[in-house]
Each structure stands twice: as structure tokens, then as C-alpha cells.
């Protein structure tokens, strides 16, 4: 425990915390996407999946609390690192700074992260808590279960919700593509032998997550899923 606490005391340790929590959150995004893709199978499958998830409150709340802890660790550590990074830079900046070959994604991690945070809050209020469109969330299916399918379809028939969703997915893509490369580096698992493989993996992951996540609202908006 004492050793683990040491991770929080140095910049490299905090980067490791970012990497481990980031990896877990990446995993969550993937699992979440796979689960939601069931919307393309039909109302019954998706609603059944949703019902299954909620059937064990112990597991459900365990997972929710776990995710919350991970997200909080990720955010708090990020803020602490950003603050010390800003201090390290000093008061004067270059007259015409060059990016020295760095990618856009790598430079906007904090901004993309904040947008994602805002999106998560909205996303939860929209589809989990159900306070944005209370009438959507009150829908029930034939079995008397919460009609998740109906709620999602109704929500994504509104253009601005889809718009917000797609924009957030672009930034999530940026965040995850750099995040995946960086976490291998922070965990000390990246070297020039594998780095091009990791970079490709990050790109594939980005495209797949972006395409998958956007497929749902866009298909609904276009009327492909009703």
C-alpha cells in the first residue's frame, strides 16, 4: 500500500496512474460499444441486455462505483499533472512557438478530456438518469421493462443531440488514439520495435470506436433504425 501511494507522489507515478485508469476506461468504452451495438439486432435484444445489467443491483452499483472511482482518479491526476506542467513551463512563452513534430491529439489531451467529461455528464443525464427528456425515459416495452430501445431512438431523432454526440465522439477519438499510444509509453511497454504496431492499433481503435459509436445516432437520425 505504501508502495502504491508512492505512485501518487511523482510525475512519473501519476502518469502510471493515468495509464492504468486510462486503459480501464478504454476497456469500458469498448465493452459499452459492443453492448450498445445490440440495437441493430432489435428492440428485444437491447432491452433484454439492459434488463440483465440492472437485474443485480450489487454488481450494477459495484461497477458504477468502480467506474466513478477510476474516472475521478483519472481526472484528479490529470488536473494535478496539468497544473505542474503549466508551472514547469514558466511565465514567458516563445514568440512563435513551433510544435516540433507533435500531433494535434497529443497537445489537446486536457481540452478533449474536458469535453468528454461534459459529454459524459450529459450522456448520463440523458440516458441513465433520464432528466433531459423524462417522457423518453418513462417508456415501457411489452414485458413491462424499461424500453431502452425506444428511449434511444426517440433521443437520437433530435438533430442537436446527434450533433453533440458526433462532435464528442471526434474528441473521444483524439483522446483515445493518443491515450492508447501514451499509456503504452507510460507503462514502459513501448519501444521502437513495437511503436508502429501500437500506433496502428491506436488508429484502428479510434476508427472503430468512432464509427461504432456514431453509427447508432446517425442511423436513427437517418431513419435506418426506427
Amino acid at each position: 500500500m505504501k508502495a502504491l501511494a508512492a505512485f501518487f507522489r511523482t510525475s512519473v507515478g501519476k502518469k502510471l496512474v493515468m495509464a492504468v485508469t486510462g486503459l480501464l476506461l478504454y476497456g469500458f468504452v469498448v465493452v459499452h460499444l459492443i453492448g450498445n451495438m445490440q440495437i441493430f439486432i432489435g428492440r428485444e435484444t437491447l432491452n433484454g441486455y439492459a434488463h440483465f445489467l440492472k437485474s443485480e443491483p450489487f454488481i450494477l452499483w459495484g461497477a458504477r462505483l468502480g467506474l466513478l472511482t477510476i474516472v475521478c482518479l483519472h481526472i484528479v491526476t490529470a488536473i494535478s499533472l496539468s497544473a505542474s506542467n503549466r508551472r514547469a513551463r514558466g511565465a514567458t512563452s516563445y514568440d512563435n512557438p513551433s510544435h516540433n513534430g507533435s500531433t494535434l491529439a497529443s497537445r489537446i489531451m486536457l481540452a478533449s478530456g474536458l469535453v468528454i467529461l461534459f459529454f459524459i455528464v450529459f450522456h448520463l443525464l440523458h440516458l441513465t438518469v433520464g432528466v433531459i427528456f423524462p417522457d423518453h425515459s418513462a417508456l415501457k416495452d411489452d414485458k413491462g421493462h424499461h424500453d431502452v430501445y425506444g428511449m434511444v431512438v426517440k433521443g437520437f431523432q433530435i438533430w442537436w443531440v446527434v450533433g453533440l454526440y458526433v462532435v464528442s465522439m471526434v474528441l473521444l477519438g483524439f483522446h483515445l488514439s493518443h491515450g492508447l499510444q501514451a499509456l503504452f509509453q507510460s507503462l514502459g511497454l513501448k519501444n521502437s520495435k513495437y511503436s508502429s504496431l501500437i500506433d496502428k492499433l491506436a488508429l484502428v481503435g479510434w476508427v472503430a470506436i468512432f464509427a461504432g459509436n456514431c453509427a447508432i445516432p446517425v442511423s436513427i437520425l437517418l431513419g435506418l433504425v426506427k
Binding site: L81, S84, N85, N100, G101, S106, H178, A182, S186
Partner: peptide, 14 residues
């Protein structure tokens, strides 16, 4: 007082 690495790669580039 040095900052943390955010793997931008600018260091290796210069």
C-alpha cells in the same frame, strides 16, 4: 520543477 511527459514526441524531434 520539470514537468511530466505527455508523449508529444517534440523532445526527440529536436
Amino acid at each position: 520543477g520539470f514537468g511530466a511527459c505527455t508523449v508529444t514526441g517534440a523532445c526527440a524531434a529536436v
